[in-house]
Amino acid sequence: MDRRDTLKWILAASAGPLLQRQALGGGQTANAPALRGSAGPGEGYGSDPDLLKRYKAGEVWPLVLTPAQRRTVTALCDLIIPADDHSPSASAVGVVDFIDEWVSAPYPRQQHDRTLIEEGLAWLDIESTRRFTTEFAAAKLADQAAVCDDICDPAKAKEPLATAATFFARVRDLTAGGFYTTPAGFRDIGYVGNVPLLKFEGPPQDLLRKLNLSA
């Protein structure tokens, strides 16, 4: 089965929602309010959640990804954010739980992403099996990267890979969102705020001089 056939197979299996989603512009739906009405009580965390409590993935709504899907997510998000000299890998700071929580959430944007991501994970395994005779999570890093190289840039990925590229871009966003919101992510990226200060001094003078700016 070549790649074109693989995609057709997936599209057939999913009765076309991927194509519909492309027409909607991928996973970038805004928080557009419904025309009228309201979210039903008991769905999601409600309109008055406890803001002080520390939440764990799976606590507010059950997680839906299977162990096999979580293995693929783990491999993929660690390919996107591997450990380096600055910080650990995505999976080491809870990004897999976050992505599972995200696609399990009852809200429209997340439900939309769930379809995209579940189908994308299936495609990764099919593609990997076709090319390397093993599912994606068990493939060699170089082989995983070969699959991702074809889909990592939505601007260059052509049909039939455009949908897979939309999927990859969404997972990259979620991986980055999950990673850079942790203490390790803050440190890596250089976010040094969220501490009380007696005085706010503004930017250092030598930096302003370097940028030719005056305070």
Binding site: I80, I81, C152, A155, R172, L174, Y191
Partner: peptide
């Protein structure tokens, strides 16, 4: 500012779709 879930969304228009250590 404090990174949020979407702070680094959609960087591919700048990065050409990097992932891995290059993305970091």
């Amino acid at each position: 500012h404090m990174p949020g879930a979407g702070t680094l969304d959609g960087l591919e228009w700048l990065t050409g779709g990097s992932y891995g250590k290059k993305f970091k």
